[in-house]
Design a protein around this nucleic acid. Structure first.
Lengths: 181, 181
DNA sequence: CTTCCGACCGAATCGGGATTCGGTAGCTGC
DNA sequence: GCAGCTACCGAATCCCGATTCGGTCGGAAG
């Protein structure tokens, strides 16, 4: 429900109905709608991070990317709603916004660390502060994966391998590879 | 208001207050909250598309990307809220969701056409249906730009040039360039 | 058999947000 | 000075969604 309609868009009644019970039952298990949402956000965020951002000191950068991208889309395929909850725009509620920042901050840092570890010495992007570059690249990776996952969600008939292939090509080689004859 | 708090998160009262008037005045100018939002979404979506997706038959692919990426971030810098409205997750309301799909569909197709025009003959990504590849690459470009814009929004002190540099590097050359010594 | 507990339900409360409507002040053109 | 339009306001309505509470039922434990 949250994945599909967002926090404000999903009413407690709908959520309860989906579970085959009545709204007040939700309050026998969770203090408030917010608690329920926070629980889901944290759990799913952690699961997503655990399964799709794994460092591997022995792998080449290319393999590292390949494995992590592949893992991400397997995860999305296994349960699209789970991913959607984590990547939705957060509601205005300050507490939820904070939790959202925390989850995404952790993911961003993990990815940034992975990227930065590949070249511990040289600048990542000419003229850009190293930490900023790492953070932005991580953000870009997250964004591409989220964007393609969203596209895939609307085109379920496309096999995972194709989505993974495009994600890898774009992230690893960029559009240059596409443009070159 | 919509940019900051989302459709459901921004109350008509808040919107009116921001304009220095009272809620009912909004209804003297717009039939409903939805109408106001649709107006903004369409206008801003169009403006964003017009200014940051320009084909140029004489430019090289690299220049094409550079120009369009640069234009996008200039646009975002000029008015961050405008971009945010367009890229926010749409609310549950079916009519708004449809308008949202329309705006993003048009942008996606324009970008996809730009990408596809570079190599009218060969496949874009091995083993992936051409149209799907173009659509996904376009989605990826949009996603990267949106993701970096969002990051930038939280780090206003970083100069536009740096963000543009990272966006260009990632989109054009991919992480391979970053990883290579 | 009785007690206790956990899951469930229905009705009621409560507040906030969208929307409506009748009314007012100022400016425009005559 | 007056009719008419425009932008504005305040109060009232209406509805829906979150949350509360007291009560029922079936099974587990003694």
């Amino acid at each position: 429900m949250f994945a599909e309609h967002g926090y404000e868009g999903a009413s407690v009644q709908q959520i309860a109905a989906q579970a085959g019970v009545v709204a007040s039952v939700v309050y026998d298990h969770f203090g408030a709608k917010r608690e329920l949402y926070l629980e889901l956000l944290r759990q799913h965020g952690q699961a997503l991070l655990d399964r799709s951002v794994r460092p591997d000191p022995n792998a080449s950068p290319a393999d590292l990317l390949r494995h992590n991208v592949d893992a991400f889309y397997r995860f999305v395929e296994a349960d699209p709603f789970l991913w959607r909850v984590v990547f939705r725009d957060p509601p205005a509620d300050p507490e939820i916004a904070a939790a959202h920042r925390e989850v995404h901050g952790a993911a961003g840092e993990a990815i940034a660390a992975l990227i930065a570890s590949v070249r511990p010495d040289a600048p990542l992007v000419d003229g850009v502060h190293r930490d900023h570059a790492a953070a932005m690249l991580a953000e870009g990776v997250k964004a591409v994966n989220n964007g393609l996952a969203a596209w895939w969600f609307e085109h379920r008939d496309v096999p995972r391998e194709h989505v993974v292939a495009v994600a890898e090509t774009l992230l690893w080689s960029g559009l240059r590879r596409v443009a070159d004859s």
